[in-house]
Amino acid sequence: MKLKTKAILVLSPLIFIFVFAYIRTHKFEKEFKNNGKITIGRIDSIFTPPKWASTVYLFYYVGNKKHTSFESDTKYKATKRDIGKFYEIKYLPDSPEIIRVDYSKKITDTTAILKAGFSRKEIGNLKGN
């Protein structure tokens, strides 16, 4: 009997955390689909710990305000060569720090990047991208 009680006490919080995380993720994905806005983001840095997915840090502009955010890179596998490249990102208007990067949509059009709020200095030399 004590073993069942201990198991319930240990598993209950874990199940609660899992369900909460699942609901929160589902909510954000639904909000991205319905209300997400598109802009351009530049990869600023990449942190790759051993045996884990990389974390990609990006910066972008929303309403002339510079934002910095990150995304776990589980599918694309960004490398150090991707630093400085521009990609289409989707953000939530109410929470612009929550983003999704579309690595299949690399942006090289200087005019579009300038319209997204970047300066010529931030763009650098796109020929190498």
Score class of each variant (00 low, 15 high):
M1V: 06
M1C: 08
M1W: 05
K4P: 01
K4D: 13
K6M: 12
K6I: 11
K6F: 09
A7W: 08
A7I: 08
I8S: 08
I8E: 13
L9C: 07
L9E: 07
V10F: 13
V10C: 11
S12F: 14
L14C: 10
L14T: 02
F16H: 01
F16W: 00
I17H: 01
V19N: 01
A21Y: 14
Y22P: 00
I23L: 03
I23W: 00
R24I: 02
H26S: 14
F28E: 03
E29T: 07
E29Q: 15
K30P: 06
K30F: 10
K33F: 09
N34C: 06
G36E: 02
K37A: 06
K37F: 08
K37C: 09
I38M: 04
I40L: 01
G41H: 00
R42W: 01
R42C: 08
I43C: 00
S45T: 15
S45Q: 13
I46P: 07
T48R: 15
P49A: 14
P50A: 08
K51I: 13
S54K: 11
S54C: 06
S54N: 13
S54G: 08
S54H: 02
S54I: 02
T55M: 12
V56N: 06
V56P: 01
Y57N: 13
L58H: 00
L58F: 03
L58T: 07
L58I: 12
F59R: 01
Y60F: 15
Y60M: 09
Y60A: 04
G63C: 07
N64C: 10
N64V: 03
N64R: 12
K66I: 14
K66F: 09
H67S: 08
T68A: 10
S69T: 10
S69I: 11
F70K: 08
F70R: 12
E71H: 06
D73W: 06
D73M: 04
T74L: 14
K75P: 01
K75A: 05
K77R: 15
A78T: 01
T79C: 02
K80D: 11
I83L: 05
G84R: 01
G84I: 03
K85F: 09
K85N: 03
F86A: 05
Y87C: 07
E88N: 02
E88T: 15
E88A: 06
I89D: 13
K90M: 11
K90P: 15
Y91Q: 04
Y91M: 03
P93E: 12
P93L: 05
S95E: 14
E97P: 01
E97T: 15
I99E: 12
R100S: 07
V101N: 07
V101I: 14
V101T: 06
V101C: 15
Y103G: 04
K106M: 12
D109M: 05
D109N: 15
T110C: 04
T110V: 12
T111W: 09
T111P: 03
A112G: 03
I113H: 06
K115A: 10
K115H: 14
G117I: 07
F118S: 04
F118L: 09
R120G: 15
I123S: 06
L126M: 00
G128S: 12
N129R: 12
